[in-house]
């Protein structure tokens, strides 16, 4: 039952992230839900634990303009691109149950775009409450909306700067009851109260 409940939560998160992006007027590249968790070991075992935001789920839509995304791969050198393809092939093998990691695969041979890579690497990340873009949004309970390459590069936040390098031009973190919804786009998107209201409706599970 616990596994079924967990799966249900995953499915619900996925549906909500997808609804958020597919229903938006703006063109978002991806959405991630950073979920509030507590690390009892790091907290010293006193029952409190250290609060952090870890990967809850994510929905990657990609870029509508294939030409733009291909262009954004061109800055990556051949060695880096080969590394990305190898990782994709290994992950495919891992997920599909241990097939040969080096086997040729259409998806593994296709160039891995910068935003795909940024999304993929995000799965390995987490943020202590108050640190990084999601952590700051959650601690201060306020939306952070960075729009334009200059805003991302000059934010002083490593994740935003990394996103800018990978072609993002808008990065948004909207806090909810138990986590933070992050949206990224390769377009410049101005702040919208409509989007924040949608996040409030879709991701405040306590209500």
């Amino acid at each position: 039952p616990a596994a079924a409940q967990s799966r249900l939560n995953e499915d619900t998160l996925q549906q909500r992230l997808q609804a958020l992006i597919e229903g938006a007027r703006e063109t978002w590249t991806y959405a991630i839900y950073w979920q509030l968790s507590y690390d009892s070991i790091a907290g010293g075992g006193d029952g409190e634990g250290t609060a952090f935001l870890g990967w809850g789920d994510g929905y990657y839509k990609g870029e509508e303009d294939k030409g733009k995304s291909k262009k954004r791969c061109s800055s990556v050198n051949a060695v880096e691109q080969e590394h990305r393809k190898r990782v994709i092939r290994e992950l495919n093998a891992l997920i599909s149950g241990g097939a040969v990691a080096g086997a040729a695969d259409d998806a593994g041979d296709e160039e891995v775009t910068d935003t795909e890579w940024f999304f993929l690497v995000s799965m390995t990340q987490s943020f202590l409450n108050g640190t990084g873009l999601p952590g700051q949004a959650f601690l201060h309970c306020r939306t952070i909306w960075l729009s334009g390459s200059g805003a991302l590069a000059g934010s002083g936040c490593e994740r935003a700067q990394q996103g800018q390098i990978y072609g993002l031009r808008t990065l948004v973190c909207i806090p909810s009851d138990n986590g933070v919804v992050e949206l990224g786009s390769t377009d410049v998107i101005q702040q919208s109260s409509d989007l924040m209201e949608k996040v409030n409706t879709l991701f405040n599970f306590n209500n």
């Binding site: 799966r7 996925q14 994510g58 992950l91 891992l94 997920i95 993929l120 799965m123 390995t124």
Partner: peptide, 28 residues
Amino acid sequence: ITAVGLPQARKASLARFLEKRKERVTST
């Protein structure tokens, strides 16, 4: 990122991402 280093709990997200990527690649 390495395949072996990915936490178990994130495999569902990863599987979805890879599956959709396959669909995108084969549709072009």
